[in-house]
Simulated scan of single mutants.
Amino acid sequence: MQQVRNYYEILGVPRNASNDDIKKAFRKLARQYHPDVNPDDKAAEEKFKDINEAYDTLSDDQKRSEYNRSLLGASRRKTTKARDQVTANGNGTSSDYRQEFDLWKFKDFSNTSTKRAKVAPAPPPPRLSRRDVEARLTLPLERAYQGGRQRIRLEDGRSLEVDMPSGMIDGQKIRLKGQGIDGGDLYLKITVALHPLFKVQDLDIFCQIPVTPSEATLGGLIEIPTIDGLVKMNVPKGIKSGQRLRLANKGYPGSEGKRGDQLVELQIVSPQQLSDEEQALYQKIREMETFNPRQQLLSYF
């Protein structure tokens, strides 16, 4: 029987935690153990998977309700098992008594002579039945995209090394032949963890990128992160905040090898601190500029 993992302990929240508390705990731990923050740290990578697996269950009301029932059932089974062990071994003689009774049962009392006890033959061993099992595997978006060799740890304690395909998507199942129970198959259900920057929408990847007022006004090349690494993208002059640009074939791969696009939404961000020289330049630009974005509003009055 597989042991039910305590997702509440993994996220460090109580059983009655609200959805907001669970989300806050997940985001805090995800930032702490994200593979980008802990490169080549296997322990942090395993912890990151556990965190996403716990959040995937507890953030969904239906999954959380089913999980709470299974957690309660596991607790009751554990208590019952401990009580049965105390009852069976409480006087230290129950097994000896049963053995003596079995020998007495097969004696022949038809005459005064005592015959050798007849021992009943052992029953044949039960036939093993193959059974398929399912396990969940949470992966960072980059690992789901790249695929490759991946060591996984199952809830029953086994550790396997699996050759994962590239371009895995959330909810996909991977079959491992013969890795189930008694020769059955093991099905890995893939969960792609939330990414701090990218969001996959079908085959397109969406992200928001900040730009400075001068970059938005003058345009030019800026570096943009993609799932393949950094690329340079040309920002047209006079770009508006919230305007989207498209990077062709930089999205997620589909089943037929076709890739989507990356949609980049630009957000104009003003600097919070300026040097004296920058302050003087901005002041000079303000005195010289002729553009008034509120000019059209003034015509209504």
Rank of each mutant, 00 (worst) to 15 (best):
S94N: 15
F26W: 14
A17N: 10
V86F: 14
L71W: 04
D60N: 12
T57P: 06
V86W: 12
R77H: 14
L71G: 09
R83S: 08
T80W: 13
P39K: 01
A30T: 07
H34A: 12
T93L: 11
N89K: 09
P39Q: 04
N52K: 03
S59C: 08
S94G: 15
Y33T: 00
D40Q: 03
Y55V: 00
D60M: 06
R27M: 03
T79F: 13
Y67C: 11
E45W: 15
P35V: 08
V37W: 00
A44K: 05
E66R: 13
L72I: 15
R64C: 06
T80E: 14
K23F: 12
K42Y: 15
N38W: 01
T93E: 11
D21K: 12
D56Y: 08
A25M: 10
G90P: 00
A30C: 04
A25C: 09
G92C: 03
T80S: 07
K23T: 13
L29I: 02
N91R: 02
G73I: 11
K28V: 02
R83M: 12
A30D: 13
V37E: 04
P35A: 07
E53G: 10
A88I: 10
R69G: 12
G73E: 12
D40Y: 06
A82H: 15
S75C: 03
Y33S: 00
D41Y: 02
A82R: 14
R83F: 12
E66Y: 05
K78F: 06
Y33D: 01
D50G: 03
A88T: 13
L29S: 06
K49Y: 15
R83E: 10
T93D: 13
F26E: 04
A88V: 10
T93R: 10
S70G: 09
L71S: 13
N16L: 04
K23C: 02
L58S: 05
R77W: 14
I22W: 03
D36W: 03
P35H: 10
A44V: 01
D56A: 09
K78L: 02
A88H: 08
N16Q: 04
E45Y: 15
Q62W: 06
K47E: 07
A30K: 07
Y55E: 03
Q85D: 07
T87G: 03
N16M: 03
N91G: 03
P39W: 01
